[in-house]
Design a protein around this nucleic acid. Structure first.
Lengths: 246, 246
DNA sequence: AACATACTTTGATCAGGATCAAAGCAGGAT
DNA sequence: ATCCTGCTTTGATCCTGATCAAAGTATGTT
């Protein structure tokens, strides 16, 4: 159990959802968990698992980013989930992975062998409750994403994705949204296109257009600076009165 | 408690998921449930609840069809879920409805007041487990739908929707898929468009095109006959090797 | 330095679906 | 019957984003 790879910030920002399954956050369950959990790392670009493969573990993302995606016979690909630190992978009670999981950056997973995890769930109801809440939140996110995919224009899609990444980034590092904020784009243009149901050319063009309009600024290809968050929000087409953004 | 409106077929085909919360299917929990549950009916077109409204109950669809949808300020609408008999509405642990719920046909809900339902969940772990399974299934469906919205052509979208309805219909009534099957389209062209991220004109045109190709036959506007299910499947663009359809 | 590779940008053209418009159809009310 | 209303079909045209193509940029390798 190599805990030395975790610095204190990882634990300080570790969301509640992670605590539910992470022995480092719930030391009283340490021994039990240590028997069934292990860490695993993947390099950027490596597959974690393919749709249809048997999946003998569930896991929590510790560091890095992974994608959940689906590919059609002819190669058309749709990303159906973006897995950021603290997100959960896998499901108790199902043997087969329903989607492809791929590491897009270097990735560390905190894995739990499935059988003992299910046993633990049975004996610790709070884990099931926590998992239900997380799953309901994910379902809401997926449904919100359906509006983006089905009804938004290319420009609105890009703005929505940037806002999602900015929001998760801010939440994760507990940065307050100053009047400007900056972050690294973790995805290639192609990955963004797969997320948004667009082509990579359209993604590139729309990012250029947002830059030209002054909504975003770019340093290099990946470093994004947003001078005015409200401006970006208004580009998403979403209701401005939908409550606080962060 | 008016159970007389349930005929025996309703209970015979009542899926496991419904059993988890329906006293009619779990008579041993009858008294307890009777204190907290009630039936409620809605006419076709009536709203059940609007996004943002406080929601003081959870419910299970008994008969009829409802939709979950999201609308943007400018009126663009995306349906994010189709609620058929046995589907669950609402979520423990959240006060506010995240989406609009509207009855598209006459609708009967089996409602449970939220507080006591949550108490019941706490004391009956199997309900939470069941709810987790249902939610995970819904999440998978939502993610599969993201592929439809993001990457499929209009024709493939229509074929996918017809197949989903046919599949659910067959499962609900336990009809075996003969070499041909028929069902009523419960949705207007506009509702189908909202589900598929299309306009109603495109839906109409693609349905006409599928009819002209002989993939489907229509009696009137709503009664659909599918002479060859495999033919319809091949129109969805999905992998044919994805296991049995029903 | 020269090259290779992967990613990105930009241009030109095309096509699928949206939009605008009008007519057809069925069921219900008077 | 006639009218009305809501739903559906079909036509004409437009536009957004896809496709095809090529050049630009950054990073690492020999």
């Amino acid at each position: 159990m190599n805990h030395s790879s975790f610095n204190s910030r990882d634990c300080g920002t570790c969301p509640i959802r992670h605590r539910a399954v992470c022995s480092r956050c719930e030391p009283d369950e340490l021994e039990h968990l240590d028997e069934i959990k292990y860490y695993r790392t993947y390099e950027a670009g490596q597959p974690v698992i393919w749709a249809g493969d048997p999946m003998e573990f569930v896991a929590s993302v510790v560091t890095g980013i992974a994608t959940l995606s689906q590919t059609m016979e002819d190669g058309r690909t749709q990303m159906v989930g973006l897995l950021l630190p603290s997100d959960f992978i896998g499901r108790p009670g199902r043997e087969i992975a329903p989607f492809d999981v791929v590491a897009v950056t270097d990735l560390t997973l905190c894995c739990f062998r499935k059988k003992p995890f299910e046993d633990l769930m049975g004996s610790t109801p709070s884990i099931g409750t926590r998992l239900l809440q997380m799953t309901l939140d994910e379902l809401d996110s997926a449904r919100e994403w359906m509006l983006v995919l089905g009804r938004k224009t290319a420009r609105e899609k890009i703005a929505s994705l940037l806002l999602i990444i900015a929001r998760r980034d801010a939440a994760l590092y507990k940065r307050l949204p100053a009047d400007g904020m900056a972050f690294d784009l973790p995805l290639t243009r192609e990955a963004m296109a797969d997320y948004l149901g667009l082509t990579l050319e359209t993604v590139s063009r729309q990012i250029s257009a947002l830059k030209k309009s002054g909504v975003i600024q770019l340093q290099g290809k990946r470093q994004v600076h947003i001078p005015d968050l409200q401006r970006l929000v208004s580009e998403t087409g979403d209701d401005l009165d939908g409550g606080p953004i962060f």
